[in-house]
């Protein structure tokens, strides 16, 4: 758990996969017209990218439950915030 040293190779693979996903984001958003689904797709890819950063660059994959919970809490409360504000705005 603690003191897990991430090797250079893993960091490189992480970087490359992030760059790859960035390219996919740009290509799908700029050159494939899905209408409003473009937003969803882009957000989906961004979420994957963020998870990769959280898991490998920020070592959550090797970390204890508590830090994962903390990160998850941040995201969960944010979704709550978005959700309730939307309940108001969509039904006004």
């Amino acid at each position: 758990m603690a003191h897990h040293i991430v090797p250079l190779k893993t960091n490189l693979i992480t970087l490359l996969s992030l760059v790859g996903l960035t390219i996919i984001t740009v290509l799908t958003a700029k050159f494939v017209d899905l209408g409003d689904y473009n937003l969803l797709l882009a957000m989906f890819i961004a979420c994957i990218k963020a998870s990769i950063v959280l898991g490998w660059f920020m070592h959550l994959k090797y970390d204890g439950m508590m830090n994962r919970t903390i990160a998850l809490c941040g995201v969960a409360f944010l979704l709550l915030f978005v959700g309730f504000s939307y309940i108001d705005l969509f039904f006004r």
Binding site: F84, I87, D88, L89, F90, F91, R92
Partner: peptide
């Protein structure tokens, strides 16, 4: 002026 649905929830 928030929506009635949000208010009820």
């Amino acid at each position: 002026g928030q929506s009635a649905l949000a208010g009820s929830i």
